[in-house]
Design a protein around this nucleic acid. Structure first.
Lengths: 263, 263
DNA sequence: CCGGGTTGGTTCAATATTTGAACCTATGGT
DNA sequence: ACCATAGGTTCAAATATTGAACCAACCCGG
């Protein structure tokens, strides 16, 4: 692992629930030497990627991030393109919908919408990275991503988030095979014990998925009929996103065949 | 310069006018070896900070940025706090107003507002970094920043953006001294030949400025009266921002004295 | 006001990582 | 078929990174 990756990992530790991190906490979280971590923090700070609270001495994300995210969104407005589709789908199926983009070996959620219709609704925490092996979005991507990446995930550490998380590589391979057949990944209670979700990969100009679109349903409402009713709108929405990102579904993906659309 | 800084410099090259950069272009821009640059690009890409267009092979900013900027804004909404003040000030003075945050030895603009009132209006390009020595915002920060940073800037390369840019360290020192007296930095035609601007530093919890608030006027309208009329609202707006960011003006800044308010 | 615990930060020799000249490959133009 | 250009790779040499030990400041109970 190179120095750059180590430094970027430090940045990835930030999230909504952990917006400020002290030196000691960093050390605990990444398990590297204090001197090393400190040097990295200082270098990130000098470049505006972090700033330090003068009082608590804790570090938080710096202004460099803001500028670059503005650059990315004005020149390549993925988020803006995805937003209306996610909103609409959420309305249509009456459930929480979120879209995320592949970032290394994890998924980075970039937008979610909650119809706010039922009393019970899935709560979604934007700004936490999602694992590929324990979420339907992850599975949707994993099933069609580069073979070496798939292998890396399957042979790597498979964290169990709930009792139902699949941590056996072979079982996971079977799930991947299913997903490759239908194009739709379905997972229940593997990341959150109360949630069942379905997801479809979305593509950009390349022939590998760049992310996924997912519908999450509280387990109590996850009947086979409800799940079935979601598939049509989900498929159409995923197609929309892929199209507006300038992508197409490659031959190895079921959605490349028009007649395969689930209705 | 450490590896991390080198990699982050690559990211900083992106801007609205340069949203995609190829390997060769990177090499020209940073003047480092192709192999080095490539290794850095790959590492940034593996972490989701860059992505590569499959067709053109050019690199662009990746989704990691989006997530982190969301984290920063939800937990420490600088941009959201600054936005209304910039808008209001722009309305009040009828000119382009922008706020930027110190990022290393440059300023990163984070918001601007244009009243859209006159026919001639300063055009502002968000998402380009601003130099400290050639902009009023920069001067406002430079006058009150850490001595070693000031020294580094003054003794470093002072790029001339126009014929009027101050590139002599001693002249710059005099400008800094002026700014320290009044708290307001004024510069004409030093960065853009058609623009004169005034700026005031803004502070966070620490005792060094974290950025600046600036009003830009087209040279043709920059009469002494107009400039004078701007100072009051600008001072009040800068105070507002500093206050809402949890900061105060330190003793070495003229704005720390309440009676010093320009009216 | 003392002393022990905690957290942030620094040093410097040992060492692993980065570096870059040269090389390879693919693509597009003529 | 050729050359030019751009992206990408290799491996020995050089350099930057590393981490155990150390220092300093702060907090808190006695």
């Amino acid at each position: 692992m190179g120095t750059i990756t180590k430094a970027l990992e430090l940045l990835d530790l930030f999230s909504k629930s952990r917006p400020e991190i002290g030196l000691g906490e960093f050390v605990k979280l990444v398990g590297r030497d204090k001197a090393t971590v400190h040097r990295h923090l200082v270098e990130l700070m000098q470049n505006g990627w972090l700033e330090q609270d003068p009082a608590s001495r804790a570090y938080r994300l710096g202004p460099a991030i803001l500028r670059l995210s503005a650059v990315r969104e004005t020149t390549y407005p993925t988020r803006a393109l995805i937003r209306p589709v996610v909103r609409q789908l959420s309305e249509d199926v009456g459930e929480l919908v979120h879209a995320s983009l592949l970032q290394g070996d994890q998924l980075s959620p970039i937008f979610f919408a909650d119809p706010g219709r039922y009393g019970v609704q899935v709560h979604f925490n934007l700004s936490e990275l999602l694992p590929l092996h324990a979420t339907s979005s992850g599975l949707a991507v994993l099933a069609f991503c580069a073979p070496d990446q798939q292998e890396r995930i399957l042979t790597g550490a498979l964290t169990a988030y709930t009792k139902a998380t699949t941590t056996d590589p072979e079982t996971l391979r079977a799930l991947i095979e299913d997903t490759r057949q239908t194009g739709i990944a379905g997972i229940s209670q593997a990341f959150d014990a109360e949630v069942a979700s379905q997801a479809i990969a979305v593509y950009g100009p390349g022939d590998r998925p760049i992310g996924a679109l997912s519908v999450s349903v509280p387990s109590v409402r996850a009947t086979p009929e409800h799940r079935q009713n979601i598939r049509g709108p989900l498929t159409r929405a995923a197609r929309d996103i892929t199209r507006s990102l300038g992508g197409t579904y490659p031959p190895d993906h079921p959605l490349s065949r028009h007649e395969a659309e689930v209705t």
